[in-house]
Structure formats: structure tokens, C-alpha cells
Design a protein around this nucleic acid. Structure first.
Lengths: 336, 336
DNA sequence: TCAATTCATGCAAAGCTTTGCGGAAAGCTT
DNA sequence: AAGCTTTCCGCAAAGCTTTGCATGAATTGA
């Protein structure tokens, strides 16, 4: 039950030289003679030496860890984005530590605390849908802690961010519905305080206007982003005196909830009700009928977010917001 | 742009006492007088002191990090298990660091290296489907590094593990098909070296026998677990002179691939071909028709795995394998 | 042969925390 | 008043690495 890792000290003792000599030899410092250098390097390789990151962290005040806070770990959207972040971070020799806010404001604040206590070098955050007070983020900026947000963002003048072009995507959806002959188009949004809810609502309205459709407030519903609440929202829409013939859900889970309610009501998709989602490739091909949707380039969004993070970690550039273009993939759920 | 975190030293200097006094006061050591203790605690709270985990790690040789290696970050199965692990780890004050083997043997070995270099205290692993050589795991055990596996496991006498009762689940599926009137039941497995492939195959055969059905080797297909390869496997099955009237896929992605191929062939589910998956709740309700499946209790599996990990981290108990019971949830895809 | 370089290596501090041990001051007893 | 016990606190080491400065030896030039 010996020590698990060899240290410079161990190597030094074995070769009867000082720790600093070993350290220098290993990093090709010119002060060390060739003979000794090769001898030290050989032993280090044999013993499988690797520098202790704790010691390095202490010395350099850098842990090479970056904290991620997501509202939910399980859905494809976030795991895919995390995957994208992780791939870039790994390239730079960074680890990611993931915390889950579970869509709760309190948990989000707590996660920030914990990650800072763990000495992450900075944070990448997607806000919980409950969060409307942004003081905790402003504080991070004030303390000079690197922070980048994605998808659900706030304080764009203070905090670098990566988002989808939400308004434009919404408009494309409305236009698409219109082209397919749908005329009463509903939108099931998330909580009002979320930037994505707002932006997509603006796009929705702009889209209606562009198609010369009369906006009807009754066709805009809100839900808490859960499958069940989306289903309930759809049920309310279907009970309207003049129900929609098409509906657009703010994300994948919501779209599935909508489809479920429509089917349970005995209506056909896309004949009676068209559906479009804001979602990622995989799911949409699995549901039936295949779901027309905006492809959110999730993996890429993760990569871009990580790149932006590293940019701001190393230099003091002003915050920028990267807007990713989306694409509408037409499938069966919206082709009357 | 001062230091980001206050240290004991900072507090000590401010109060003109020694570092050790501050340290002791903060942990209620009896040697410190009441008056001084409260004064120190007050300042610590004000300054938002939290002990530096790097220093602690160095001192205690414990990083409170646990490494997880999964074959894939994006699928619901793994993200849900990770979520379960994380919830238990967080309770114990541990962080999880996640590495993705991408179903590749080489990447798996590399991830082990990297996580050890990062000084995780132990590893939780689900093997890549490529992995058949288990020397790298045996090495970990020899080095005394805590290791627990889940779902796809190996060396059960050496390595503690959490698995589903695969054989029994398979049998239940066959029995279920039989009860619904299906008679030519196919099984689309994963790579042969995987324990889950083997165990479920055994259960499949036992199930056929219990139902007095003749096993037909042509009805067992293998795939690499991807949607596409599952689809290809199903196409091969459908081209048989005597194609199956029911098929069982080794996991969710595979089952979706099967359904896709069946639909493309113009066959109806469940009338022409019954389908059962080995999957998790959410997806199965979203596809059409809803997929009958074995519920893999993923979140719980993650929790149990983490609990087992901590058990073995702290004491030297012999390896045990925890077998989780599964449940067959009947939905439309298998009810002729 | 002595002084002046050059070359190779070691010392020690810093980064932060815990903890055994020793020390000083105060209070008590006789 | 001297000695003893409490009570309270600081020193220093360990855990690991990097790096400026110092030291020692060896080599060169005069």
C-alpha cells in the first residue's frame, strides 16, 4: 500500500540529485548537462512520473478546471452541448466539472458557490428557467471571474454569450407553416423571463406580420418546459372556440408534449394540426410522424462556447455575443 | 485585480494571530479561547473564507474527485446514470469528472490515464463496446485504485459492479412475445464480447426454450449499437425467407433503428412485427407506436453505483455485483 | 599560478492547510 | 513567594512543484 504517485522528490532521492535538478531536467532547462538530463528523463518515464496538478494549481493559482452549470443533465440538448464544450476543453488540457441546477434558481446560485469553492478558473452557464434576478451573475463579472453563457443568457453587454438566432428561426417557422397552408399558428413558449421565450415570441409576431396573419393572443401559451405542462398547454389550445391548425413548441420536450396532447385528442398530425419544434436531429427522426424542426447546432454551440470562454480567460476583450444560424429541417409533421 | 480567494494567512495577518490559531478556531479546537474563536469566525464569514481544496488535497492526498468514463455522453441512458452518480457524489462533497470514450478502446485507455493524472480518487467505468482486452482494468485493481463498473462490466470477481438482471429481462421479453402470439422472435444484439450481449443472448435462448420455441441462429443478429447498423441488421432479418414476426433490440437506439427499418419496409408495428426494447421511460412514450420495453432504472443505477464506489473507497470489502431487477412495461409496439 | 569565467547543481521560498509539540503567561496551592 | 497546573497560542513540517539566487567546481586566460 505504497504511495500512488511518484514525485520529483522520489526521483531526486533515487538519483541522488536535488529536486530542482530533476524539475529542470524534465523541462529541458539548459542548465542541466546532457548526460544527467537523459538519465533523469529515462527514470521519470520508467516510474511513470506525471506532475501533481494539485501542486501546480497551488503554485500557479490555476486549476485547469472549468465549471459548467446546466438546467438539466439528461436532455439531449444539454448533454450534446456539454460534449462540445468538453471536446474543446480537453484539447486545451482542461477538465470540465458539471453542476446541475435542475431548473432552480436557488440551486443555480448554490452551484456557483460550490464551483468557486472548488476553484474552477471560470464558469460556463445556461440559466435555469426560474432565474429572473441576475445579480449573482453580475457579481461574478465584478469579481473578475471568467463567465460565458449559452442559449439562455442575460446581461449581453457584460457577459459573452453564444446563442441561436431565435427571432429569425421563429420567423422561418411561421413562414414555413404559412407556405404549407396553415393559418392559425400557435406558439407554446417557456417562462416569460427567459430571453429565448421573448426572442422567439418577437420572431413569431414578426413572422405573422410578414405573412399578413392577424395575431391572436389566445394562441400564445406559456409552459414551464416540462412534457406535462406542454401537454396541458396544448390541451388548453385545443379547447379554444377557434383552435389552432398549427403549433410551434419552444424546444424538443415541449414539442413532444404537444404531439402527445394532439394525438390524445384524436387529431392527426400533420393533417389536422401541424407541429414544428426547436430541437436536435436525433429525436425528431424517432418520433412519429418525424418532426419538422429548427436544428439547433448543439455540439457546435458547445464548441463555440468553449472557444469563447478560452478567449476571455486569456485576454481582456470586451464581451461579444455569437449568434449561430439555424436551419429549418422539413419533415412530415408540418406538411399538410 | 487582487487575489481571488482569502487564505488563512490573510485572516491571520488581519487579526495579528498565527495561521494555526485561525485554522484551529475555525474548526472549534478547544485550545482556542471563546473570545478569539468568535472573532476569527466572524472575520472568516465576512471575508467569505473557504479552505483551498488544492492545499487540502495535497495535504490529505485526496482530491474529492471521482472519474467517470462512459462510452457516450449524449444518450439518455448515460446522462441519466451520470446524473444519479452525481447526486450521490455531491452529497458526499465529491465532484465528478467525466470522460467520454466514444465507444473506442484506445480512447478508454487514454481516459484512464488522464483521469489518473488529474488525481481522481477512483474510477467509475462503463466499458466501450470495442473493449475486449481487460488488462487495463486489471492493472487498476493491482495498483489499488478504487474502481466500480456498471452495465457493461468485466472481471466480476475483481471489480465491484452494478448491472441489470439481463438474462431474466430477456426471458421476460420472450415470454411476453409468446403470450401475445408471436412465434418467430429475433434478437438484435450488440458486439459479442460485451457481457450484456452475452447475458441477454443466454436469456433469449432460455426464454425460447421455456416457451418450447425452436431457436433459429438466423434470428440472432449483431450490430455495433448505432441507429444505422441496427437498421441494417433489421433489413437483413426482413430479407430472410422466413422473417421474424417479433424483434427485440438490445437497447433504445437499436430498437429505434429496428422500428425505422420495419416502417420503411412498409410493415406495421405491432401487427406485422412486434418490437420490444431495452430502454428508458421517456423515449419509449415519444415514438410511435409507444415502445414496449424493459425499464432500465438508470438514475437508480447511477446512485447504486456511486454508493458501491464509496463503500469500496473507504473499506477493503471484497468485490460484489449488485443486480438490479428490471420491469417490462407493455405498450403498443408488441400487442398484436 | 592566480584570477576570472563558465557550467552544473542545490537552497529556499511561495502557494495553503493541518497538527504534534513546545512555550509563555496566568492562576492556583502551600 | 516558589512551584505547579491550566489555558492559550505559535513554530515547523509535510504534501509537491517552480524558479531566482547562490554555491561549488572546473576551465580558461593572462
Amino acid at each position: 500500500m505504497g504511495k500512488r504517485h511518484v514525485s520529483l522528490k522520489d526521483l531526486a532521492k533515487e538519483l541522488n540529485v536535488s529536486i530542482s535538478t530533476v524539475s529542470r531536467a524534465l523541462k529541458d532547462h539548459p542548465d542541466i548537462s546532457n548526460a544527467l538530463r537523459t538519465k533523469i528523463k529515462k527514470l521519470a518515464a520508467e516510474r511513470n512520473y506525471s506532475p501533481n496538478p494539485l501542486a501546480m494549481g497551488l503554485l500557479k493559482q490555476a486549476t485547469r478546471m472549468i465549471g459548467i452549470i446546466v438546467p438539466d443533465l439528461v436532455s439531449h440538448f444539454y448533454s450534446s452541448i456539454i460534449s462540445g464544450i468538453e471536446s474543446v476543453a480537453a484539447d486545451k488540457g482542461y477538465f470540465v466539472v458539471i453542476a446541475n441546477s435542475n431548473e432552480r434558481y436557488e440551486k443555480e446560485k448554490e452551484s456557483i458557490e460550490n464551483l468557486l469553492k472548488a476553484r474552477v478558473e471560470g464558469l460556463i452557464v445556461c440559466m435555469s428557467c426560474e432565474t429572473s434576478d441576475t445579480a449573482h451573475f453580475r457579481q461574478l463579472v465584478q469579481k473578475g471571474i471568467p463567465l460565458v453563457m449559452f442559449d439562455r443568457v442575460c446581461l449581453p453587454n457584460l457577459i459573452p454569450a453564444v446563442v441561436a438566432d431565435n427571432a429569425e428561426a421563429s420567423q422561418k417557422i411561421i413562414q414555413h407553416f404559412y407556405d404549407r397552408g396553415y393559418r392559425r399558428i400557435a406558439y407554446v413558449s417557456g417562462p416569460e423571463q427567459m430571453n429565448i421565450s421573448q426572442e422567439r415570441l418577437l420572431g413569431y409576431r414578426a413572422g405573422l406580420k410578414a405573412c399578413s396573419l392577424e395575431p391572436d393572443p389566445a394562441l400564445v401559451e406559456f409552459c414551464d418546459l416540462s412534457f406535462e405542462s406542454a401537454k396541458a398547454a396544448m390541451k388548453r389550445l385545443l379547447q379554444l372556440a377557434n383552435p389552432p391548425d398549427a403549433v410551434y413548441g419552444i424546444n424538443d420536450t415541449v414539442a413532444f408534449g404537444l404531439m402527445n396532447a394532439i394525438k390524445e385528442a384524436g387529431l392527426r398530425i400533420p393533417e389536422d394540426t401541424g407541429v414544428v419544434g426547436f430541437t436536435d436531429e436525433f429525436h425528431s427522426t424517432v418520433v412519429s410522424p418525424p418532426l419538422t424542426s429548427i436544428t439547433h447546432p448543439t455540439f457546435e454551440m458547445g464548441q463555440k462556447t468553449a472557444e469563447l470562454f478560452f478567449k476571455h480567460l486569456n485576454s481582456d476583450v470586451p464581451p461579444e455575443t455569437i449568434v449561430l444560424k439555424t436551419q429549418l429541417i422539413e419533415r412530415l409533421s408540418s406538411s399538410k
